[in-house]
Every structure is written in C-alpha cells, then in structure tokens.
Simulated assay, not measured.
Amino acid sequence: MTDLARFPATTEGMSPTELGVARAAALFERVDPGRAAALLETVLAEDPDTAAGWILMARIRLVLDQVDAALDAAGRAIRLAPEDPRPVGAASRALTLLGRHDEAVAMAYRAVIAEPQNPLWHDRVAWALLAADRQTADAEQAARTAIGLAPDEAHYYFTHGVALDALGHADQARQALLTSLRLEPENPVAQHRLAVLNGETRRENEPKRRGWKLFGRNKDAGSRSSRPEEYLP
C-alpha cells in the first residue's frame, strides 16, 4: 500500500536534518513510534522548516493517538510544502478522527487534485465520506477509482466492500471482500466484515466518537491490521 511518507533509501550526502528525519523514519518503520517521535522532536527543534520532518511527525502522532498534535504537524507541513499531497492526506485523516468531517472530505479531495494517479488519496476520500455517513455513492466511486489505479492492493477492495455494504449492495460487497481476502487472506477485519455479511456474526454497534477507537485502535491493535481506516463501523 502506498505510504504517507517517502524517504531516501541511502543516507550518503544527506544534511544533518535529512539524516535525523531518515533515522526517525527507520525507527518508525521498526514499530518504535515513541522513540521516532522523540528523535524527530529534536530534529524539528533544530530545523523547524523541514517539511519532510513534519510530514513524518504527523504520521507518527496519528499512530500514537495524538490526533490534535498530528493535525498541527500536518498543518505545518502544508504551509511549508503546499503542493505536496502527503500532509494534506494526513490532515484529512486527523480531521476525520476529530469528527470534523466537512474539512476532512475537503482535504481528501485536495490530495486527489494534487496527485490524481495515487490511489491512496481516492481511498482517503472514500473513508472520509464513509466516516461522515454521507455521499456514499461518491465513496463507492472513489473506492472503485483506487482499485483501477492499484488492482493488486487488497485494502482498496476492502474499502469498496464497505462502501457497497453501506449502499445496501450486500452481494457485491461480499464479492469485494472475497477479492480482498484472496489478496490478503490473513486480514482479520476483512474476515469479520465478511462474516457479518454472511450472517455468521453480529455487526458491532459502537457509537462513533472522537479518537482512534473510532477505527479500533486499542490495546489489541497490535494483533490486527495496521490500517486504521479498516475499523470504521
């Protein structure tokens, strides 16, 4: 799946700031977001004008369930690199988690406009609309667009299945989820969604609320999918 952060594969010839950001990114990829954030805080204190650092910080703050800080980091990155869709996408996710759905949808579409061939942003549009519980047909269209751009990515079929289910198209939703599971058989969230559609288990009716729990990020999240949007009720 396309990532929200892109960093160089080598450190040769990098400035101290670039090296610090790369090291923080490596820590984050090794699933140590706390240490990554601590290192990145030092880097950004020394050089607060590095967009790449703020983009990474936004992503780390989201993982740490620090949504307000994530939105602040994304906003700083947007001011430094207004043409870059990555901080816009991160801001959209944070705004969704904060329940600021109109802004989240607007930011998601802004990312699509900036980089229309990136399926990640179409997927973000779909989830922003699904979280807002509005324009579900547009969410389904966005999910289909993501699939067209990345037909081998299981997550986009999952998104499409959720959107189809929201539209009441149970059979089509089932087929989309089956395709997602064929590509990624061990995804427990897709397995659960399919079981719900098949009547094998009950749909959870948790109230929507602020924070990562909207997407199921809790103490058990480590054993689940790493994609928080998959936990949208």
Rank of each mutant, 00 (worst) to 15 (best):
E140M: 06
V189M: 08
A131I: 05
R217G: 13
A38R: 13
V112L: 07
A104S: 07
V189L: 10
S15Y: 11
D152T: 15
E230H: 07
A195S: 13
E140N: 08
L232Q: 03
A9C: 11
H101C: 04
V189T: 10
E12R: 15
L27A: 04
D65T: 14
K213N: 14
A77F: 02
R59G: 02
H169W: 15
R210A: 02
A5W: 01
S226T: 10
Q191D: 08
G99P: 01
S15F: 09
P151Y: 15
A111M: 01
Q172A: 15
A143K: 00
N198H: 15
Q172H: 12
D123E: 13
A173V: 02
E103V: 05
L19G: 09
A106Q: 12
E41A: 11
N187D: 13
A94M: 03
R86H: 05
E115N: 12
P151H: 15
K213I: 14
P82V: 12
R61A: 02
L214G: 02
D47A: 14
A74H: 02
H160P: 00
A26I: 01
R134V: 07
I55A: 01
G168Y: 14
Q191T: 12
E115G: 11
A74N: 01
D102Q: 13
L129R: 06
P33D: 08
F7E: 04
R100D: 05
R61E: 09
A137M: 09
N198C: 10
V125G: 03
E230V: 06
P8S: 13
V43K: 00
D220F: 15
Y157F: 15
K219P: 05
R210K: 05
N218K: 13
